[in-house]
Nucleic acid binder design. Structure first.
Lengths: 149, 149
DNA sequence: AAAATAAAAGACTAAATTGTCCTTTAATAT
DNA sequence: ATATTAAAGGACAATTTAGTCTTTTATTTT
């Protein structure tokens, strides 16, 4: 569905958001631990999110990644997806490509509703919503088939 | 959204279905022309579809690819997607992996409805529905940004 | 100031996906 | 029978995605 980079990035961002809401920075080690993802690869993804202005970071001891409350409230899943895998989900038809907007795509009719719902959900779901659920223990960021038993 | 192989395969299958409904076989050259896809790669994809028992093929002049009326009626998009890109869309959470079924995934709640709709649509849309629309001139299988102007 | 800590950065390897090319095999037409 | 046509098959090449390793740079302790 999404690329690994995107999945990992979403999970990491949600964890950072959770920690930031508690006034805590999250270090790479910690993030990798909680999300069960490859450290060096995650480092790259976090870098990308920092460059994109989504996360902020400080080096050295007591350093780590954080995200401002304003961004937790305002950044939507759509923005994460966009920065982590380009426009694969932006305005493309479920079957074809960009031109689907004005050409009549046979699958367009079938999938239009679904696509709208999908994009709508990505546009409307804020980090806050998801991070809150996680804080309440309503979810996990680690998946059994990727980590240890 | 889907892999190239999957997109190409769906388009090819729909064209073959259209032609088969007219009692015509479709050759590779023709398929590649209509769908605007790389010939050698498409050949591989068609092979896969033949192996999977979705399409049938005959060699030599007057040969080409075809699909029986029974299969046009009964094969759903879900089956194409499954044979062309494995279980990436089968029972996996939109964010995480297989384990999402019993673990509580934070995005699961948000996306469950959408996922269900998506899988449902793949399960319920038959080749016949789509090929019929195409036959009526209600769509195209070629996308501008991939072919010539 | 020096040692320790942690992110930034860049070069690299591995694997999967996408795509090409060339030979073989099966069917038809002359 | 032979030539022709078109799919089957296998071996590659290119690209993208995923992942690793090593060095540098910025911060903070001591």
């Amino acid at each position: 569905m999404f690329s690994k980079a995107c999945e990992y990035g979403i999970r990491a961002t949600l964890y950072v958001a959770m920690q930031s809401m508690e006034g805590q920075r999250a270090g790479l080690r910690e993030i990798v631990d909680v999300t069960g993802t490859p450290a060096a690869y995650m480092a790259k993804i976090l870098q990308k999110l920092v460059h994109a202005g989504i996360l902020d970071s400080v080096r050295g001891p007591v350093g780590g990644f954080g995200i401002s409350r304003i961004k937790i409230d305002n950044i939507r899943l759509a923005e994460l997806v966009h920065t982590l895998e380009g426009d694969r989900f932006q305005g493309t038809c479920l079957l074809g490509k960009k031109s689907c907007g004005d050409t009549v795509c046979p699958l367009h009719n079938e999938f239009l509703e679904m696509k709208e719902e999908m994009l709508g959900m990505l546009e409307n779901t804020s980090l806050f919503e998801l991070a809150s659920q996680l804080s309440l223990g309503l979810g996990t960021l680690k998946y059994r088939d990727e980590g240890e038993t």
